[in-house]
């Protein structure tokens, strides 16, 4: 696939729309044990960064951040939403999700394609959680004692979900074989 500016623009726009759509419809929120929902809205930024580079990832993060700002202001639903009206909490951390994911991917891509995709999902997702939680603490919406508990309770499962989605989408899109190219139903044949 040839790399082109037009593709970068379109992929950035379309994946931004995915992030915004997931947020607007609440599809991107998965109810979780800890009470606070897991979110997967930052995954498009990770996928965009892996496919089209760090700038595209940052732009998707920007649009995602602005959407969560607008949504927090226009139609807040969670107890922490008012905090996201502050762009330093809602926008700035999201700008860095894509570039971080890209760096993690770039370090291992090629031969270790699948692990590199998983890792970039984890790194991108953790950057999102840690920066957002840190910003929340910095502005007094949370206390610093809660930093590690929140990162563990929500950040880790989010990172897992991001890794799974990133691998599934990018491997399918780029045609990278998984599980040695065998369908998992093959294992059922001997049972």
């Amino acid at each position: 696939m040839k790399k082109s500016v037009v593709r970068k623009i379109v992929v950035a726009g379309v994946l931004s729309a995915v992030a915004a759509f997931l947020g607007l419809t609440r599809l991107g929120y998965i109810p979780w044990f800890s009470g606070a929902s897991l979110t997967v809205m930052h995954v498009p930024a990770i996928v965009g960064a892996v496919l089209e580079g760090p700038i595209v990832g940052a732009v998707i993060g920007l649009v995602f951040g602005l959407t969560s700002l607008l949504q927090a202001a226009i139609a807040p639903t969670g107890p922490l939403d008012p905090a996201f009206v502050n762009p330093l909490i809602s926008v700035l951390p999201r700008l860095l999700v894509g570039p971080a994911a890209f760096l993690a991917y770039a370090a291992f891509r090629g031969k270790l394609e699948i692990p590199a995709l998983g890792l970039s999902g984890i790194v991108g997702s953790l950057v999102n959680t840690m920066l957002v939680v840190a910003a929340l603490a910095l502005f007094g919406f949370l206390t610093w004692d809660l930093f590690w508990p929140v990162v563990t309770a929500n950040g880790l499962p989010e990172a897992g979900a991001a890794a799974i989605v990133n691998v599934a989408v990018v491997a399918a899109w780029k045609g990278v074989a998984r599980r040695g190219g065998k369908a998992s139903i093959a294992a059922e044949e001997d049972r």
Partner: peptide, 11 residues
């Protein structure tokens, strides 16, 4: 601006 326009169109 084009990115934002495309995002609007795709939602």
């Amino acid at each position: 601006a084009l990115v934002v326009g495309i995002a609007f169109r795709f939602i």
